[in-house]
């Protein structure tokens, strides 16, 4: 059982962890929307968003190294854009870097996407590592996301752990039999693994459904709900909406 990479720090205790999921969802989502819509001419607003997130990170006591490692998910996309920079012909002058000519317009685009994607990813990681997924889903349900979708998401989340375990066991078995994974035809092994995984998953689904029926499942999931949206949650949501918006409006 090794899947600590899934919402690993969501069960710490801090003011941010204790806040209502709705406040955090609305707050972080609006921070992302404001950040993405900020014109990239200035660097100051992005620095300010970043500082705001750092302050929240400090409050949440989630390790900064963990967040930085997770932020690497956006790197492939940033690199992809960086590769295209020499091809941009949108003014802004050009710079020479050895044999390459970098266009100013391209560098602006690179700055734009890097700043925005890194800050947004930071926000999502902070959201998911201060809110456990079941709580996040409860928050989304309160925010009127269709119930069927919520039920699907929560069941999927429940079984992701089981199947990831299954995949890790299969991978271990494969590697201990000397699989190298260097050539195209070795992909066939992956195909067999995925097929086995599908059959096992589906049959598990049938068994789970049968077991649920036996326990009186009728399509509805009943949970004990004790959530309150207090003044503190309201303040958090307000600050997360108001601070970025103010920064954004002042730098226009």
């Amino acid at each position: 059982m090794q899947h600590g990479f899934l919402d690993r720090y969501a069960n710490l205790d801090s003011p941010l962890h204790r806040a209502d999921a709705r406040a955090k969802i609305v707050g972080f989502l609006s921070l992302i929307i404001v950040c993405v819509s900020t014109p990239s001419r200035y660097w100051q607003p992005f620095a300010a968003y970043f500082l705001l997130l750092l302050a929240l990170l400090a409050i949440s006591r989630v390790p900064i190294l963990y967040v930085m490692k997770r932020m690497a998910v956006v790197l492939p996309f940033i690199l992809m854009v960086a590769i295209f920079i020499p091809f941009f012909k949108r003014g802004g002058g050009s710079y020479n870097l050895g044999p390459l000519t970098l266009s100013g317009g391209g560098l602006m685009v690179l700055w734009n996407v890097s700043a925005k994607s890194l800050i947004s990813v930071f926000s999502v990681i902070l959201l998911s590592s201060t809110t456990s997924f079941p709580e996040l889903l409860k928050g989304l349900e309160r925010l009127k996301v269709p119930k069927l979708l919520i039920a699907l998401l929560s069941f999927t989340y429940r079984y992701v752990f089981v199947l990831v375990d299954e995949v890790q066991r299969m991978r271990r078995a494969r590697d201990s039999r000397g699989w190298k994974g260097r050539w195209l035809w070795e992909g066939k092994v992956i195909g067999h693994m995925i097929a086995t995984l599908f059959l096992r998953s589906y049959e598990r689904g049938e068994r789970v459904y049968g077991a649920m029926l036996a326990r009186g499942y009728d399509g509805r999931i009943r949970t004990l709900e004790i959530t309150t949206f207090g003044i503190y949650d309201f303040a958090l949501a307000f600050l997360l909406v108001a601070i970025p918006l103010t920064i954004r409006l002042f730098t226009g």
């Binding site: 699907l152 069941f155 999927t156 199947l163 995984l197 599908f198 998953s201 589906y202 689904g205 459904y209």
Partner: peptide, 10 residues
């Protein structure tokens, strides 16, 4: 729901 969810997890 359980069946679809297991397909998604798959």
């Amino acid at each position: 729901v359980p069946m679809l969810a297991l397909c998604a997890a798959f």
